[in-house]
Design a protein around this nucleic acid. Structure first.
Lengths: 153, 153
DNA sequence: TCACATTTAATTGTTCGCAATTGAATGTGC
DNA sequence: GCACATTCAATTGCGAACAATTAAATGTGA
């Protein structure tokens, strides 16, 4: 007779699933970021794009997509919103007319200084030592990369 | 003179951010789940709702939301889709007419058996021992709960 | 050169996720 | 019993996220 909490059901229990842990942690991060990013006028995915651009400017959409694991269906409208906010400029590459190059505007560059406060606040909110966070991050990245390897068959 | 990779910029670098690790790992999980859940006719958030219901049936929307950290704006349309797929039934509670109770249909119950294959496939894809995954899961859940505690001031 | 595949971004349609609002039901203090 | 706040789901609007398709530019082989 199957009981309410049979051992066979353990793998299906919500609290046993690492994917739900990751899923719900991502949402929790988003909620902590929200008020911080509101001050910058950015959403979290837009913030990620800006992080990429602050590292290297004038890159094709495809490069941004590879770093963030996002495709053009997500990035095209997002980048248009960043352009509407005067943070980036989108121009067709002259060497390869298929590519659209994304470059920061002066305002986009300037926003970087304001953004420096964000990681500090997040560190405080996580209530955790830097070394612990780095260790966790490395584990999660390793897991992510193994998962992504499976997707590519 | 700020160089290309100055130490002051380290906290803003994408690869140093645990939140991006979590964010991208969540997407990677989603992509691994996709083909498995397609066979069940479920999306990942729908699968999470079914996990909750397989543990305890006939619960108000609010209870599901608390377990999954989702609100009615997300759950109402999702539950209507599950109802359209004949997996759940939505009925107003007679004790409290504000509440909508979600109950599994026979088909919803039956789907549980097919779902048992899912966690196994995920375990294989993560290419990791169960004990390692459990340890990681506990760390991530602890981090998530600290973040959620900050949100509630 | 010319047919053909590949690359790249854009578009369309569906589903999440959440903030803000609405409206009905319930509970509370007086 | 009645004004008032609270609770709950539903709704609206916006921004991701992604699959599938489209269209243009480029590369490749015969």
């Amino acid at each position: 007779m199957p009981r309410k909490h049979s051992a066979a059901d353990a793998p299906l229990r919500l609290d046993n699933q690492i994917c739900f842990a990751v899923y719900s942690a991502a949402h929790a991060f988003n909620r902590v970021y929200k008020p911080l990013l509101d001050r910058l006028g950015l959403t979290y995915p837009q913030y990620l794009v800006m992080l990429v651009l602050w590292e290297r400017d004038d890159v094709p959409v495809r490069d941004i997509g590879e770093k963030l694991f996002l495709d053009s269906g997500t990035l095209t409208p997002l980048l248009k919103r960043l352009e509407a906010a005067h943070l980036v400029k989108r121009t067709r590459s002259r060497e390869d007319e298929r590519q659209v190059l994304i470059a920061l505007t002066p305002q986009g560059h300037a926003l970087k200084d304001k953004a420096r406060a964000v990681p500090q606040s997040i560190l405080a909110a996580s209530d955790c030592s830097v070394s612990e966070l780095v260790a966790m991050k490395d584990e999660i990245v390793a897991l992510r990369d193994r998962l992504n390897a499976v997707i590519g068959e």
